[in-house]
Amino acid sequence: MSLKMTMKGGFQMSFNPDSVNIVMTLHPQVALLAQLMLIGALFLALFRLIRGPNTVDRIVALDLIAGVILALTLFYAITQNKIHFMNVGLAVAVIAFLGTVAMARYLEKKYLKREIEKTPESHHTSSNKQNPPSSTNH
C-alpha cells in the first residue's frame, strides 16, 4: 500500500499486493495456541471472580485478569507489528498494581476496625485516643 500526494491536495491510495511486506514473526499455529491459552486463562480467572468465597479471592482474580490482559496486549503488539501497544501494556501494569494495593489497604483498614470494635480492652484505649481529655488541650 502506498500513499501519493495528488495535485488537488488529497491523498491517493493505491494497493499493490507485491509491495506489501508483512512481518510474520510468530508461526500461525503458535499464535493460535498462545491465544487459546490466554483466553482460557481469562475464563478460568473469571470463574474465580464470580464465585470467590471471600472478597480477597475476587481481588486476586482481578489481579490475575489484569496480568492476562497485559499478556494479550503484548501478544497483539507482536502479531500486528505495532509498537504503540506496549505503552498500553505499561499502563495496564501500573493501573493493576495501584488498584490491587488500594483494595488491599481498604480491606486491611476495615478488618482492623472490626478487630478493634470486637475486643473490649482495645476499644477503651482507642476511644481514649480518639477523645483525649479536655484538660490536655489547655
Binding site: L26, A31, L33, G40, A41, L64, F75
Partner: peptide
Amino acid sequence: INVLVLIGASFVLIAALGVF
C-alpha cells in the same frame, strides 16, 4: 520469540488454573 510467547502463555494458563 515463538518459544518465549509459548512459555509465557502457558505460565499464565498455569496461574489461572491454580487460581481456579
